[in-house]
Amino acid sequence: MKTTLLLIATLLFPVVGKAEDLRKATFAAGCFWCLEAIYERVPGVTGAVSGYTGGKESNPTYQQVGSGATTHAEAVQVTYDAEKVSLNELLDVFWRSHDPTDGRGVAPDFGKQYRSELYYGNSEEKKVITASKAALQKTLKKPIATKVVKFTKFWPAENYHQDYVRLNPNNSYVRNVSIPRLIETGFKE
């Protein structure tokens, strides 16, 4: 009986990577719909959740964050299999996904809630992120505006924001901003 239940559970809930290989990384770079759609296409990423981070307020909402009424940024929290994709590879995608030298936000979305930030959870992540930023800076003429910030808390966005690009392919913002940004980052629609 236990074997049968285990087999059924395995079929219904297959293991994606070993638990010890799964990591989380949090990125802010403009609209979270765009960033989520980009990271969902990265091999080795097992999940991407749109949400809010980098601020002080508890339980922020889309209306609060989007209007600039909080100190949070729209962000994406990525779960990835470290055996299949490294933090450096995820950072490469991040840098390619937007102009990190624009301190106003990520076009066409400007404001503090659309800022470019990288969040680290420990000293090793900070070291990797800082080195990645420094390496990119050597190739650019303008200074990188992206901040490297200690991760505190991630608040998932409302359910209707999750998988937004996939579920709303005919939305004008998706067609005119999200899809072109996805393609410019090197992924197919």
Rank of each mutant, 00 (worst) to 15 (best):
S86H: 06
G54K: 13
V45F: 11
Y52W: 02
G105Q: 05
V93C: 09
C31E: 01
H72G: 02
C34E: 08
P43S: 08
G47N: 15
S50F: 00
K84E: 03
K56A: 15
L22E: 06
T79C: 00
S86I: 05
I38S: 03
P43Q: 09
N88T: 13
S58G: 12
G55P: 01
Q77I: 05
F32S: 12
S58C: 10
G30K: 09
L22R: 10
G66L: 11
F32T: 06
F110C: 03
A37D: 12
D109R: 14
G68W: 10
T79R: 03
G47W: 03
A28F: 11
T53I: 10
S50K: 03
V78T: 06
V78M: 07
S97N: 04
A37I: 00
R41F: 08
L90D: 04
V93M: 10
G66N: 14
S86N: 07
N88I: 07
K56P: 07
A75I: 11
G30A: 09
R96M: 10
G51W: 00
S58F: 09
Q77E: 15
R96V: 04
P60Q: 07
E83Y: 06
S67Q: 13
L90I: 13
S50Q: 06
G47D: 15
T46I: 14
Q63V: 12
I38M: 03
G111E: 10
V42P: 04
T79K: 02
K112M: 12
E83P: 06
R23V: 05
A73H: 11
Y114L: 08
R96P: 03
G51V: 00
L91Q: 01
K56H: 14
L91F: 08
A29Q: 12
A82Q: 15
R115S: 13
L35I: 14
Y52N: 07
E83G: 13
D99I: 08
S86Q: 05
D92S: 13
P100M: 12
D81Y: 11
S50R: 02
N88E: 15
E89I: 03
T101G: 13
I38D: 00
D99F: 09
F32L: 13
K24P: 01
G111Y: 13
H72K: 06
P108W: 11
D81W: 09
G55A: 02
V78C: 06
V45K: 06
T70K: 01
D102K: 07
H98Y: 09
V49P: 04
E74P: 03
C34N: 09
G47M: 07
E36L: 05
F110P: 00
A82S: 15
Q63T: 12
Y80F: 15
G68Y: 10
N88K: 14
E36W: 00
G103R: 09
L35W: 04
R41S: 04
G111A: 11
A29H: 10
P108Q: 13
A107K: 15
D109K: 14
Q64A: 15
S50D: 10
T71N: 09
T70N: 03
D102W: 02
G51L: 01
L87D: 02
P60N: 07
T61R: 08
V78I: 14
I38Q: 01
P60T: 02
F110I: 11
P100W: 03
L22C: 02
